[in-house]
Each structure stands twice: as C-alpha cells, then as structure tokens.
C-alpha cells in the first residue's frame, strides 16, 4: 500500500468538478467513485510523493509504505497552513511525532 484513503473522513470534495487529490496527483491515479469517495486506481503506480496527502483538506489520506519496503505499519499525514506545513508521523508502536515546518515566506520576508 502507498496511500490509504479513509472513506469515513473523505467528503469527496463535493461541489468541485474534481476531487482535490484527483486534480493534483502527478500520476493521474486518484479518482472519485460513484459514491463520491476518492480512490486510487493502482497502488503499484504510486510514487508516494504525498501530493494528495497534502492537498486533502480533511486529512482523509495517509501515506504508507508498500509492505515489501517495510512490513510494519506506520503512517504520515500533512496539513497545509498558509505559510507552514504540519506533519504527523505515526510509528508502528502507535506513538506519534509532529513537525511544523515553514513552507512559504510571507511577503515582508522576501
């Protein structure tokens, strides 16, 4: 598995012509199913670039590694704020780590 989409959280980006993950995936892998939930068409074609993870406004998408690369479950989510990105990493044992990283300099700093 490369990404996991939690259908309980995904709201399908209702009202938009495309779901945000569908719009952004550089490999054109995400799409919206008939039930208006996002899905990935081919896990084996995923680069694990996390573009969809970052774009999802409700954090329904987790980044995971394919089992062959790491057999223990861990996952990663991101939230984009105006000028920073907040990452949460869940370790195999359940504990988590958070990172808040600057991602854009504001007008006055440029």
């Amino acid at each position: 598995m490369s990404i996991f989409i939690d259908e309980n959280i995904c709201n399908g980006c209702k009202g938009l012509a495309e779901a945000r993950c569908e719009r952004i995936c550089p490999g054109d892998l995400c799409y919206r199913k008939e039930n208006m939930k996002a899905a990935i068409r081919d896990q084996s074609a995923c680069w694990t670039c996390a573009a969809c993870v970052k774009e999802c406004p409700v954090q329904a998408i987790e980044l995971r590694l394919p089992f062959q690369a790491c057999s223990n479950g861990a996952s990663l989510k991101a939230r984009l704020k105006h000028d920073k990105t907040i990452w949460t990493v869940w370790y195999a044992d359940g504990h988590q780590e958070e990172f808040i990283i600057q991602a854009k300099c504001l007008k006055g700093d440029r």
Partner: peptide, 23 residues
C-alpha cells in the same frame, strides 16, 4: 536528527515513514 527528518519531509517523506515503520 530532528533537523534531518524535517529536511526529508521537505523532499522525501518516505524515509521518515521508513524509520517510523521500523520503530
């Protein structure tokens, strides 16, 4: 170590996930 993870999240989040998976 923390800085290294931050740098990787900016470019290659998979390695942070790999470390987390391996605990």
């Amino acid at each position: 170590e923390r800085r290294l993870k931050e740098d990787f999240l900016n470019m290659n989040p998979q390695i942070v996930l790999l470390w987390a998976g391996k605990g």
